[in-house]
Design a protein around this nucleic acid. Structure first.
Lengths: 340, 340
DNA sequence: ATTGGCAGTCGGAGCACTTGAGTGCCAGAG
DNA sequence: CTCTGGCACTCAAGTGCTCCGACTGCCAAT
């Protein structure tokens, strides 16, 4: 059974190992931390921790390092959320303070977070799932080519081109535009998908082929844009922690580029009572990220959209600092986007 | 003076070294290539090449590896553009064959190119510099918030939000919209920037404050979007060639993320008579990329927009294959975007 | 111009040895 | 029951050494 002190020992093992990347032994513990007991006692505690698979020895006779399970206990029970330094708070203020539109806010956020944590930062775009159609624009690009622009009330813009069979008629285009906006404006994406079904029939038969093309494209846009998107920054930080990944950071870089993987991972993560979600090491093995940890928090934007911000890095990361940074940024973002 | 055969020797040194990452010696050359002369003769040629700083010896007595200058000579004089395999040609066809809009074409292109070359692939977005304004849309997001959307004839969409002081008046908004489109539609970005100056004065004084806000934002959009944008894929490939970078790939990853750096690099590159531009190793030192080579080719899209596609990788890369891939993809892209 | 031969160089592998950090265990004290 | 000091043991990593092999550079002969 893990005693109180043995958990303290686990804490300092995690702290020291994260700081130095070197297995930590009983002697160095009593030297660097005032436990008031001898090294032998610490050794007994370490034997307990090892029995519970919270720490392990890389070589028969060397210091111990935390296991993934050990990190998990550390994060769940031992990590006092270190408050951000004032310098960090200021960085958030100045970085995110004056940003003009959503895209810029998110771009800055992800960069800021990667700098605060020295890890890869991730920001998940709000999906169009719960947003509503604000406006639809039809723009002729040439006589036979049409651009369809879909604008949502969350400020996102999706565009697509189609080729039409008959030359475009500006007046009729205006009619279609008005009708589409009238019937679809304000609808959520799910409703819009339904409403699109009936629109074609409301036109004169001779026009229906043309309208059908537009409606089909719009349907694709509505469907396709329900997918989430992801912003990323700080990939270079992975190169600095390359030793923490078994030899190569290739799989990590690959997973990062394959955004779908990360989106699924994000989707699976359940935030705890503090709004923070953590996945440590082996828990991500199914995503090919068995040696990385991911911290995520949600943020809410106008219209109740829920999306996520987080960081990804080696299992051996500074959890207290990174958790605090993720939470602070997520909160700031919620405030910024909520008060609009 | 470099003889004919000594250049052949340089060629096989580059080829073998690129293939094996091991210094190549005179003996292994005569074994693997039918030169019809002895190793001693090859050694004489190698002495010549070393004198001209085309090859160098990492250790006093070991094989030779090409210098950056050696790669340059190889690329300029010795690399026979290896034709793509039929498998590669097919990959281009099937990958790029059916794509609906510009964004998708470019996304697929950059992925394809990274797979063909096993390097980092880059595609530079057409800038708005030479494109023309097709349409301007004003969309009220709330009573005091307005979205301004700028659509160009090359199919790009730029958006921005502004806060206005007085509640929005739908009718007046329509008037402004019509006027803006009338005065700016069809103008190039440079002309538009000028035309914007005079627009405010054409409104009634009482409305001018409001219009001025819109015009200011549009001006920013026109100015800001002259900047180029960049797509990237295959960063994970850098992890596989990590040994080719002095220890760490950090600077490379950093430069890649800092897109501005790459855009400037691209801008500096001058294509040769085949439409290919090459920068090898030390030539990129000014960009912090002294150990990487960049290959680029231009492509033209509708409206004469000129932009670039290329790859970036370690100096020790397979130039013939990569140059052929870049050129083939650029040509295919020109055809695809030119015939629209 | 080319060749074979030969001495010389140097990195890297293999090996024995040492060092030191660290463990596990035990018997004794509190 | 907990803690402690002591002691034997283990093992990774560093050091110094030799040996081997792959090369080069040079030279005299063809």
């Amino acid at each position: 059974m893990a005693t109180d002190r043995s958990l303290d020992v686990l804490r300092v093992i995690v702290q020291d190992y994260v700081a130095s990347r070197e297995p930590v032994g009983s002697k160095s513990i009593v030297e660097r931390h005032a436990f008031g007991v001898s090294a032998a006692t610490i050794r007994n505690d370490m034997a307990l921790l090892e029995e519970e698979e919270l720490i392990t020895a890389p070589h028969t006779s060397s210091g111990r390092i935390p296991t993934d399970k050990g990190y998990r206990v550390f994060v769940d029970q031992l990590a006092d959320l270190r408050p951000l330094t004032t310098a960090q708070r200021q960085a958030i203020e100045t970085f995110l303070g004056h940003a003009s539109d959503l895209d810029e806010v998110l771009t800055r956020t992800v960069r800021l977070l990667s700098q605060l944590t020295h890890q890869v930062a991730l920001v998940q775009y709000p999906s169009l799932g719960r947003s509503r159609i604000r406006h639809i624009e039809l723009v002729p690009l040439s006589t036979l080519r049409l651009m369809i622009v879909l604008i949502t009330d969350t400020g996102r813009v999706e565009q697509r081109h189609i080729d039409v069979e008959a030359p475009l008629d500006e007046a009729f285009l205006g009619e279609v535009r008005a009708k589409l906006n009238g019937m679809l404006g304000g609808l959520g994406m799910a409703d819009a998908a339904v409403a699109l079904q009936g629109i074609v029939d409301s036109f004169q038969p001779v026009r229906r082929a043309f309208v059908a093309e537009i409606v089909e494209s719009l349907g694709e846009q509505v469907a396709a844009t329900r997918g989430e998107k992801l912003l990323m920054a700080g990939a270079a930080n992975l190169a600095l922690t390359a030793e923490d990944f078994g030899g190569s950071i290739y799989p990590v870089l690959e997973a990062i580029e394959e955004q779908v993987t990360l989106l699924r991972l994000f989707a699976e993560m359940e935030p705890d009572q503090h709004g923070l979600a953590t996945r440590i090491g082996i828990e991500n093995a199914a995503f090919g990220l068995g040696e990385t940890s991911v911290l995520a928090s949600g943020y809410t934007s106008t219209g109740g959209e829920f999306a996520r911000v987080g960081v990804l890095g080696p299992t051996r990361m500074d959890y207290p600092n990174n958790m605090a940074a993720v939470r602070a940024v997520a909160r700031y973002l919620s405030r910024l986007l909520g008060e609009e």
